[in-house]
Design a protein around this nucleic acid. Structure first.
Lengths: 334, 334
DNA sequence: CTGAAAGCGCTAACAA
DNA sequence: TTGTTAGCGCTTTCAG
């Protein structure tokens, strides 16, 4: 069943069918009704590939998201979707696995879907000029930036929190409560991810507060996984190092750590205080409720859209927006 | 940059370029290298739409998943993806929102991607013959079946647990511990979803155990949301009804309920015992660890793939597989 | 308001 | 081993 069949069945030309299918004006009511009737009768479904191939332009904005199941992005996506719709564009969502290349994905989408702009939700901090040269439409990085890459600030946009400062703040909360043996739970101290940035904030804070960086207090797992955080924490606890608190670089990892601590008989926050960064919904349901620095997800989403749309319309230049975090008091600090 | 440009630049014909791009045999080493060089130099990316349009067949198996962020499906998808790959096919994943129509999505995909078969991960229990008539390739429902629809059993496959029995079992665990005032937390008693099936199991169990169905003990929220479960439980608790335990139809909802109970000063499981169905990872990290009947996610995934592949190869007929659940003891039962 | 026809970028016979 | 060419199913001028 193709557009040709419908045309024949409806007794009109394919262009007329195409017009009614695309809500074009200049189609007589009679023709429209006739076509629609046939379309319904035969359950005709236009071929998307052919459609995209034939089209000369689109109103598509691409959103490529790292991590299919990352709850952190869910809220942002909702917001982004609504705002894009609202601005009169269409969101084309593409989720990719951890091993996929977001730049390549974006480049493909740009050509396939004729994108006008792109929003990256999560991604690497070290894109190079050469890599992004395959992308020819404006793009904005949401929740991260290019601090380990060599992009020109005038060539891309970003909206994120100050991860270094957030980590600093987290440590400061612990410090002000009197904690001096502050462990850090991270993915890798220099894995080029946001983990590294937040670790730098941790280091900076220790330094400012006159605390020595103790290698034994660095709990490094090689993922952002809740199960790995649990295992990693378990293993680390066996060393019996002296500590009074933990700064986890993400809510998810903190949740894994909580279980390990609890099983070890450590009371949170009496024996061990805990703070993290992110503010995902799940950590609100933990017992005790996780104390964490929340990223302003809605604002990040709407700002990101505001950016691409502005860029698409050529009304603004690339900007780098830093949004503030807010503390969710929770119950893991005392 | 199209295949034509590459052909010209490499001094060969488009078909030769197409051949090397698709790893066809019968291409001289020289030609292959030449083409690849140009492709790399210009960062050429083939247009997917054109590719799909031109192709006469594919090795694609479609997977349509309800709920972008449902952690329950994540593990299954991983398993399904691996198995499909393993069987020599390609997985085409499509996630849809709660308001989208999975049948329509599947029908579209079938045509666009030239699918050989489809796996539905989550979906409605009441498809009608007419609805699925738009689908012309074999499909299998994973984690659900058609018990509220009118499909012929010989026309589709399914792999799922016995939801009614699982609910029955859950209630039985509570009953055997001496609980008699068993509340049920569900989405809707007759919303046509799995909630309804599990509620039926709850009713059957009460009946078998000689307990009366008490309307006051039915906590109905209109979603599967953790936040809504929390709110709903909170609200219900204000009534002050007498109860000694809760059967939540899903882990996620149970997690919301736990917070509400805790805030009300109820100790779990001392004051209130709790059991659910699903066995998602997150509920393992709750404090106390949620007691729940786990769905065998890996098995469901691999069985689903075994089914489609068998159907595609024409080696088997439609089957309806029921897999057993296993109890995760947890800490919310005593 | 409608139709004919030329693409869109690629694949796949079919010849050579 | 290679090139020519006819589609794939749709959109979009351009005439009428």
């Amino acid at each position: 069943m193709t557009i040709k069949d419908i045309a024949r069945l409806a007794g009109v030309s394919v262009s007329t069918v195409s017009r009614v299918l695309n809500d074009h004006p200049d189609v007589s009511k009679a023709a429209k009704e006739k076509v629609l009737a046939i379309v319904n009768e035969y359950n005709y479904i236009p071929n998307t590939s052919a459609r995209e191939l034939g089209k000369s332009s689109s109103d598509n904005i691409g959103v490529v998201v790292r991590g299919m199941s990352n709850p952190f992005y869910t809220k942002i996506i909702t917001e982004v979707g609504a705002r894009i719709e609202n601005a009169g564009y269409t969101m084309v969502l593409q989720q990719i696995g951890t091993s996929d290349d977001e730049i390549l994905t974006a480049a493909r989408m740009e050509r396939d879907k004729k994108l006008l702009g792109i929003i990256f939700l999560g991604g690497k901090l070290n894109y190079t000029k050469e890599q992004v040269s395959t992308i020819n439409v404006p793009f904005v990085c949401c929740t991260f930036n290019n601090q380990y890459g060599n992009l020109d600030k005038a060539d891309y946009s970003s909206v994120c929190i100050d991860d270094n400062q957030a980590a600093y703040d987290a440590v400061e909360y612990l410090y002000k409560e009197g904690h001096r043996r502050i462990a850090v739970l991270l993915s890798g101290p220099d894995d080029g991810s946001v983990s590294q940035v937040r670790f730098a904030g941790y280091e900076r804070a220790l330094n400012d507060f006159g605390l020595d960086l103790d290698e034994n207090l660095i709990i490094s797992i090689n993922s952002f996984n809740i199960a790995d955080a649990y295992e990693g924490m378990n293993e680390w606890l066996r060393n019996g190092y002296d500590f009074d608190s933990v700064f986890a670089i993400s809510d998810n990892m903190a949740m894994g750590a909580m279980k390990a601590l609890r099983e070890k008989g450590k009371d949170i926050p009496k024996d061990v205080a805990l703070i993290a960064i992110d503010g995902i919904e799940a950590s609100e349901y933990m017992n005790p409720v996780l104390s964490t620095l929340c990223q302003p997800m809605d604002d990040m989403g709407s700002e990101a859209v505001k950016q691409v749309v502005g860029l698409i319309k050529g009304k603004i230049n690339h900007k780098h927006i830093v949004l503030p975090t807010t503390l969710r008091a929770g119950e893991t600090l005392r």
